[in-house]
Nucleic acid binder design. Structure first.
Lengths: 175, 175
DNA sequence: GTCTATAGTCCGATAGAC
DNA sequence: GTCTATCGGACTATAGAC
């Protein structure tokens, strides 16, 4: 993962071959593909723990809470994770922004986070389409707040940004 | 496009080679790649006209209208397009649902529709992050309503479904 | 670890439309 | 003469089969 990120930054994602990544990591090409399904996946290893955080936050929310409020808590918790790994998050995003294939992978990861949260909401008795709607709206807020944060080089407080963005979504949809 | 869709349905997306598509269409492999950047793109040719419809609907909305109401009109207009091409839309979606690579491509197309609408909103004086937030929320509604419609084999009225989904989003975020 | 299929690129050639 | 469409062959890297 480290070798891949370095090379993607140094010479760009497309210009880096798996052979080069493997060499720098002291492995063979074949071993790389044992761990990562493809060349993109190496940048998204962290998505699984993020999903666990989101799902467990939803799972442990008070039953009485409105679904969208639960999603909001989960997304705010996710924000702290990026804040804590500021440097790595910014590097990783700088690579993704430059490559459409990586953007595709990022979008499907985000969609899968939304699906996981929606699934947990349904398990707690929330019906469709409300479960998916809340989850997708929450992910949209995360995406947009994160983008602002990155554009500001991570200098603002992401959690704060997320809260403000949720408030703006509420205002926009209420009109 | 026709040859590709047929083959993707007959034997699956992954099991179809570009050589086979080209042969059925009476072309060579090379010519296929002249028109489509990759094997997936052939299923998303229609996205451009959809984008034009969305953007022009946003562009011609009354200036006084709230941004989210404008987006809602655009998404409802898009719904009619799918309703009118019911058969083709359902076939295409059945292929996409079976393949993660195609889902990735679909997500980036949806994101690009959102970006185009947000761009048009900004041109009309709507500030960020409101422009992106309205556009992304609208696309989320389209995605979820479309999914319900497909699950019901296109028997419900998609425009109606979209209106209901917008109302549910408003209710969910208001809480 | 070895072997292989195929996606996708790059070079260019050819031929018809106007 | 220019534009555009098709075709050909060689090539590389990804990714899967075994």
């Amino acid at each position: 993962m480290q070798a891949a990120l370095e090379l993607y930054i140094e010479r760009g994602f497309e210009q880096t071959t798996v052979a080069e990544i493997a060499k720098r990591a002291g492995l063979t090409e074949r071993t790389f593909f044992r761990y990562f399904a493809d060349k993109r996946e190496v940048l998204f290893w962290g998505a699984m723990s993020l999903q666990e955080l989101l799902v467990s936050t939803v799972a442990t929310a008070p039953e009485s809470e409105a679904p969208f409020a639960t999603i909001r808590s989960a997304i705010e918790a996710a924000g702290s994770v990026f804040q804590d790994r500021r440097e790595g998050a910014l590097q990783r995003q700088s690579v993704i922004t430059l490559n459409p294939e990586l953007q595709e992978r990022e979008l499907i990861k985000l969609a899968s986070l939304a699906a996981a949260m929606a699934g947990e909401l349904r398990r707690r008795g929330v019906a469709e389409p409300n479960a998916s709607l809340s989850a997708e709206a929450g992910i949209a807020v995360l995406k947009i707040a994160f983008e602002s944060w990155v554009n500001d080089k991570g200098e603002m407080d992401l959690s704060q940004l997320i809260r403000e963005t949720f408030d703006k979504l509420r205002a926009a949809t209420a009109g």
